[in-house]
């Protein structure tokens, strides 16, 4: 009995020593995460304390789950939670497939020049700052002078005041997000596609496969690991959203769909110095995200063989 327990221990150490180079390669990362991520982690306590800046994080007194109780029992919180969820899920559903499709299409283009130009144009919007993006959205969607409404009117319709309709907010947010990021997001898929062995295509063509079939049977499977990982990571951001963009797009009329957790936390935190409360909401947010990530990861592992760990 003793020997059995002793053996694994010794061979564990031996395995580690034998593979010391792997651990050496990992060391810089370990130092980084320990110092910059886990070091400040004690700050999570703010969510469980009555944070007093004079006493510091450690000196402030404990408040237990008081803040959690406060916002969970508030009438408005669940509405905001729902908004956040709906916005993210909608963005993922609509926005996730498009970069993949774009990458697949671009990959098929023979002309290098066309490819380069299209790619450069497609990822250019990613760099424009959010402030300007939102100004442009407001200008284009303006009921009196915006391009979109001018087109609608040219076709005989009535101008629509897009920015004040709560129901339209999610669509505007999602599609402007796609416009801004689809090119950039497709880059990672394009990189994966370049790793495909060209002999596979030759073999498929000799078997008489059409282009579409090649894509379906060769390209997509090779993208699968990246797609799955990206999906899992997106799921982990399900209670996130582009905080700055939403904040700038918000106006009084659409708060019932446009108020999300991050903007709410910002209003309470910076606006009303409620550090502990906003920290508690942040912790809650993270917990949910993390649980979702674990769930989705487990599902993906069961279904395929790719997972995060």
């Amino acid at each position: 009995m003793d020997q059995q327990n002793a053996k694994p221990k010794r061979s564990l150490l031996r395995i580690v020593l034998r593979n010391y180079q792997v651990y050496l390669l990992l060391l810089p990362c370990i130092i980084y995460f320990a110092l910059f991520c886990y070091g400040p982690m004690y700050g999570l306590q703010i969510a469980f304390k009555n944070y007093n800046t004079g006493l510091g994080i450690l000196g402030s007194e404990w408040a237990g789950l008081k803040w959690f109780q406060q916002f969970l029992s508030s009438g408005v919180f669940w509405g905001i939670f729902k908004n956040t969820l709906v916005l993210s899920v909608y963005t993922i559903i609509v926005g996730f497939p498009l970069p993949i499709i774009l990458a697949l299409m671009l990959n098929e283009v023979r002309s290098l020049r066309f490819k380069k130009i299209t790619q450069t144009i497609s990822y250019a919007p990613h760099f424009i700052s959010t402030v300007v993006i939102v100004s442009m959205i407001t200008l284009f969607l303006s009921p009196s002078s915006g391009v979109i409404n001018k087109i609608i009117e040219a076709f005989g319709g009535d101008a629509v005041y897009f920015m004040i309709k709560p129901k339209l907010f999610q669509h505007i947010y999602a599609f402007s997000g796609i416009w801004q990021h689809v090119g950039w997001s497709s880059i990672i898929y394009l990189a994966a596609l370049t790793g495909i062995d060209p002999t596979l295509y030759e073999a498929a063509q000799m078997d008489g496969a059409s282009r579409m079939r090649c894509i379906w049977h060769i390209n997509l499977p090779s993208l699968r690991p990246v797609i799955v990982i990206s999906l899992i990571l997106s799921a982990g951001g399900v209670l996130g959203g582009d905080f700055e963009k939403i904040l700038l797009m918000q106006n009084a009329s659409i708060m019932e769909t446009a108020d999300v957790i991050s903007t709410y936390v910002y209003r309470l935190g910076i606006g009303m110095s409620q550090f502990s409360l906003s920290s508690a909401i942040g912790v809650f947010n993270s917990v949910i995200n993390f649980i979702v990530l674990l769930l989705v990861n487990k599902i993906c592992r069961k279904v395929g063989d790719t997972s995060l760990w």
Partner: peptide, 29 residues
């Protein structure tokens, strides 16, 4: 290094690293 999941400690470290994507001490600390 993290691809070597058969080695001891790699999987837990992976978990610990991923954990930090969600939980952070915040701005002040």
């Amino acid at each position: 290094a993290l691809t070597k999941t058969h080695l001891p400690g790699i999987r837990p470290i992976m978990f610990l690293f991923t954990f930090t994507m969600f939980f952070s001490g915040g701005l002040i600390p």
